[in-house]
């Protein structure tokens, strides 16, 4: 399986951590895409900056989560969604931290994995690090070497194999 990217959003809707691995494939139609991006009237997917990407992801999960709650009751939650190209896994802690992982479509449910990242990496290295701020206003984000190393190792060891 392949992990494309990983995001954490805090309760202020701020993306506090993002990491990209393999680039996510954009739809590769049979026709070669043209540089002007308007061939056949279909706009070619533009490469997004990392920030726009995170904003889009947040917008999606935010609406999806609210919709799920409206339809399925307050306690309902969405776990993942799948498109033809990728699968997005979602885990939200009771403190409104949102963990998002984008993988290829063949991946099984990663809810437990995301929970594991929260419990044994985020809480241990970010929350319990007394010098790391609790809130990350203005998009500074988690800047914690131990955590980054941990995520890297964890993903390589348990997911990329």
């Amino acid at each position: 399986m392949v992990v494309y990217s990983f995001y954490i959003f805090d309760r202020h809707a701020e993306c506090i951590y993002k990491k990209k691995w393999a680039p996510r494939p954009t739809s590769t139609g049979s026709k070669t895409q043209q540089a002007n991006g308007l061939a056949d009237g279909a706009p070619q997917p533009k490469a997004l900056s990392a920030e726009d990407d995170a904003k889009l992801v947040f917008g999606t999960i935010f609406s999806l989560r609210n919709m799920v709650r409206k339809l399925g009751g307050e306690d309902d939650r969405f776990i993942s969604y799948r498109t033809g190209q990728y699968k997005l896994h979602y885990y939200e802690t009771p403190t409104s931290l949102k963990f998002v992982m984008v993988t290829d479509t063949k991946t099984n449910n990663l809810r437990i994995v995301l929970h594991q990242i929260y419990v044994s990496l985020y809480v241990e290295f970010v929350v319990k690090n007394p010098l790391s701020p609790i809130e990350h206003p203005g998009g500074i984000g988690v800047n914690c070497e131990m955590f980054e190393l941990g995520v890297e190792q964890f993903v390589n060891a348990s997911l990329m194999s």
Partner: peptide
């Protein structure tokens, strides 16, 4: 901070 540890 403690709340995160609590949930974890």
């Amino acid at each position: 901070r403690l709340i995160e540890d609590f949930f974890a």
